[in-house]
């Protein structure tokens, strides 16, 4: 039990919302309406995450990802079921739970907007009561992993989105939490910044054995960081295993890249069980000239897309 950073057992979360009517007349009706409906955002999700693991928590928009994260962080109370973070119920021990977790939401900074980063760090050190030696050690580790000099004395409000995200991630790890939740940490960032941030997360995870729960729509994040992924759709867990294992299900799929006469690449996903690759190429050659051909295994992106589209696993 102690090896598990996070345990969820049959967790459900319902919301009550007003049934709204359409149009101007509907709006007037709603003024007096008592017509509520219940929406199940999370349905019977069970999950165990070991210490030091990085898991990708995936799902299409509105699948219930953020609701789950909010329950794990103790902000929301589950309607039923049990959640244990480091062996404690987060909702009942919110303050205590917060000591051991770090949270980053891609687009909203949690730092003091007008303060230089170093001052935010110092305030966080005091808020989390981090011993000075441990704090300095952490800053040293940061220096070894990323170049923090350009941002350390900059107020957060003057930072670029990438610098801000970087700062938020550093801040989330500062008190050496056992679990860090990262919600779309690379959203809106350029390629080199994405790489930097992935390397940082990986480095911190390795150095501190921090459990990382990562939600993202960017399969590059998943490929770079996670071995295990959990997929949730319409509030239900539909997949929970290694990526490789998942790819195995689609083992017969290949991505065919063809360079056409006008030097453009066309790609196609082919299931070798049902379609013959050579046949596809021959057919294509009847229409246009093919200059080059590349055959690849199915990418994570395409696997996930297939699952979102309802392909059973």
């Amino acid at each position: 039990m102690e090896d598990q950073a996070l345990v969820m057992k049959n967790v459900c979360k319902d919301f009550k919302v007003l049934n709204r009517h359409e149009g101007l007349k509907g709006s007037i009706q709603d003024l007096f309406s008592r017509d509520y409906k219940t929406i199940s955002a999370v349905k019977d999700v069970s999950l165990e995450v070991a210490r030091g693991e990085i898991i990708g928590y995936l799902g299409p928009n509105g699948a219930g990802k953020s609701t789950t994260i909010k329950m794990m962080t103790g902000v929301l109370e589950p309607t039923s079921g049990e959640i244990l973070v480091n062996g404690k119920v987060p909702y009942k021990n919110r303050t205590e739970n917060c000591e051991n977790i770090g949270v980053v939401f891609g687009q909203r900074s949690q730092l003091w907007w007008s303060l230089p980063l170093i001052e935010s760090f110092k305030l966080l050190r005091d808020l989390y009561m981090v011993p000075q030696a441990q704090y300095e050690e952490m800053i040293e580790l940061y220096r070894s992993l990323v170049d923090i000099e350009p941002i350390i004395n900059k107020p957060v409000r003057q930072m670029s989105l990438g610098q801000r995200t970087l700062s938020d991630i550093l801040a989330a790890f500062l008190h050496n939490p056992t679990i860090v939740f990262l919600d779309e940490p690379t959203i809106g960032l350029d390629v080199s910044m994405k790489d930097k941030i992935r390397a940082l997360i990986k480095g911190l995870n390795k150095e501190k054995n921090t459990t990382v729960i990562l939600t993202t729509h960017d399969m590059g994040d998943v490929d770079a960081l996670c071995r295990r992924i959990v997929i949730i759709d319409k509030g239900m867990k539909i997949y929970d295993n290694d990526i490789e294992h998942l790819k195995g299900y689609f083992g017969s799929y290949r991505t065919l890249h063809m360079k056409l006469a006008d030097d453009t690449w066309e790609q196609m996903l082919i299931d070798e069980k049902t379609t013959d690759v050579m046949q596809v190429i021959t057919e294509k050659q009847k229409v246009t000239k093919i200059k080059d051909i590349r055959l690849e295994e199915i990418s994570t992106e395409e696997v996930i897309k297939k699952i979102y589209e309802g392909e059973a696993v």
């Binding site: 709204r20 149009g23 101007l24 709006s27 007037i28 709603d30 003024l31 007096f32």
Partner: peptide, 15 residues
């Protein structure tokens, strides 16, 4: 105007 009316009514308790 219509959109504004609907939005205002949306906040029923506030009214």
């Amino acid at each position: 105007t219509r959109a504004g009316i609907m939005e205002s009514l949306h906040y029923r308790l506030g009214t």
